[in-house]
Simulated assay, not measured.
Amino acid sequence: MTDIDAQFAKAHEEVQQLPERPGNLTLLRLYALYKQATRGDVQGDKPGFTDIVGKYKYDAWAALKGTAQDVAKQQYVELVESLKSGAAT
């Protein structure tokens, strides 16, 4: 396991133990970075207009298309660290 993989795994555990739930936009960013880091570019069809949450998740992930998985992992780690320090909400 590389250093970034270890940091990513640790950040994924820590994000679930945050004292406060992040705002919806931050949650979408976390979701998109996690999916990009673990699965790569967005896959599947975009959800229909009746699935609002699915559509937002899809769009957030699609916005990261072309981002390398290691870069997404690093951004995820940085975002979790900022949430832990209270810098982001």
Rank of each mutant, 00 (worst) to 15 (best):
T26I: 14
V71P: 00
K65D: 12
T50D: 08
A11E: 02
V42K: 04
I4L: 12
A68F: 02
D3K: 15
D51W: 08
A37C: 06
E20G: 01
P22M: 09
A68H: 11
E78F: 02
Y34W: 13
S85N: 09
V71E: 15
G48L: 00
P47R: 10
G54F: 06
L33E: 14
L30I: 08
E81S: 11
E14Q: 14
R29A: 13
I4H: 03
K46P: 00
Y58C: 09
M1I: 14
G86I: 03
H12M: 11
Q75R: 15
L30N: 07
K46G: 00
A11Q: 03
S85E: 09
P47M: 09
K65C: 08
A60H: 10
T89W: 01
L79A: 10
V77A: 03
K57M: 12
K46S: 05
G86R: 01
K84G: 01
A9L: 12
I4C: 04
D5A: 10
Q17S: 13
G44F: 10
F49C: 00
K57T: 02
L25F: 08
A63Q: 11
D45G: 03
A68Y: 01
K57Y: 03
G44H: 12
D59Y: 02
Y76H: 11
H12G: 04
M1S: 14
T2A: 14
L64I: 11
A62S: 12
R21L: 14
M1F: 13
E13C: 03
Y34E: 07
A63V: 02
A32C: 15
A68W: 02
Q16T: 08
P47H: 13
K46W: 00
K35H: 07
A62D: 12
Q7Y: 05
G23V: 02
S85F: 01
V71N: 06
Q74R: 08
F8W: 10
L25I: 06
L83N: 01
G54H: 05
K65F: 06
P19D: 14
D45M: 11
Q36N: 09
S85A: 13
W61Y: 07
L64M: 14
E20C: 05
T67G: 06
V53F: 07
P19R: 15
E81I: 05
L28I: 08
K10R: 14
L30F: 09
Y34I: 01
K46H: 04
A88S: 13
G66T: 11
L33P: 11
D3A: 15
